[in-house]
Amino acid sequence: MSLLTELVDYVDLNQRSFFISAAAIAFNPTFWNIVARREHRTRFLTRLFGGNAQTACYALAATIFSLGIIRDFLYERALRDQPTHPALEQPLVKYAAYALLAVGNLFVISSTWRLGITGTFLGDYFGILMDGIVTGFPFNITNAPMYYGSTMSFLGSALLYGKPAGILLTLHVLVVYLIAIQFENPFTAAIYAQRDRERARAAGQTVESKKEL
């Protein structure tokens, strides 16, 4: 318990960069959920790009990716402004940091490879749906490998720099992503359920037409 207390004492809340980083972490999933849901309801991005849903999705993907780079830059800057704890400078901690970074990036890259750009960046909100559920690695380990992989990368960076503030920001990342999952998963499931109902209805109409012939 004393080590935990020491780690907390090494979080400098007087640093403005800490709160800017926390705000950027919370902003990103909030932004893409609001924009994607509005697109699903109104198709405003698709209309903006001349009715081309795929181009609109790629534009949102580029925006999300750019915001991610800015978020990561602000996080690194926040870490540099924070004090380092001696206990986090041990070799085993560094090894754990590299392992977390390796596995985290593996999860993110492999899930992007599995889903493709539109599958990764909310293409289903644009009406670009996948044929079926992806079950291969890393989705056979977790249903949200990008979120958990990103969280591992945040923690890996915090340990690599030896910054207790980074651990606290990583907890913030995890909470933000868990909240995002609670909003995204049911909404996405509803989109695919609607697609399945429409397919079943169309198949039923086809059968009835054949009977009439």
Rank of each mutant, 00 (worst) to 15 (best):
L13C: 03
A87E: 15
I20A: 08
Y161L: 02
G132L: 08
I179G: 01
E6F: 01
R197A: 15
E208N: 11
A36Y: 01
L92C: 07
N185Q: 15
Q15I: 00
L169M: 09
K210Y: 10
Y95L: 14
V8I: 12
V8W: 06
I179Y: 08
L7V: 06
F18S: 01
G156E: 01
F65I: 15
L45A: 02
F137K: 04
R195L: 14
I181M: 09
A53R: 10
S157F: 04
R199H: 07
G104N: 12
I25N: 00
E184M: 08
I69S: 07
T5W: 10
M152H: 06
S17D: 08
T5Y: 09
F73Y: 12
K94C: 04
A23R: 11
G136D: 14
I191F: 02
Q82A: 01
C57D: 13
F137S: 05
R195V: 12
A158S: 12
E89D: 12
G162D: 03
N140Y: 11
V173F: 02
L45I: 08
M1T: 13
L115W: 04
L160W: 09
Y10D: 00
F18V: 06
Y125F: 13
N52P: 07
G166M: 10
Y148I: 15
E212F: 02
T120S: 09
F154A: 01
A96N: 09
T142R: 06
I181A: 06
D12K: 02
P91Y: 05
L92T: 11
P138I: 10
L60F: 09
L169N: 01
T188A: 14
E212S: 02
T63M: 12
S17T: 13
L88A: 09
A23T: 12
T5K: 08
R41W: 12
F154I: 03
D81C: 01
E39R: 05
E184Q: 13
E198C: 00
A53V: 14
G104C: 13
A180G: 06
L45D: 03
R71I: 03
R71E: 11
T135D: 09
D12P: 00
T120G: 04
S111V: 08
V134H: 10
P91E: 10
A26D: 07
A87L: 14
L155R: 07
A78L: 05
A189Y: 12
R37G: 02
D12Q: 08
R71Q: 12
A190V: 15
T188D: 12
L106E: 09
T30Y: 01
R47P: 02
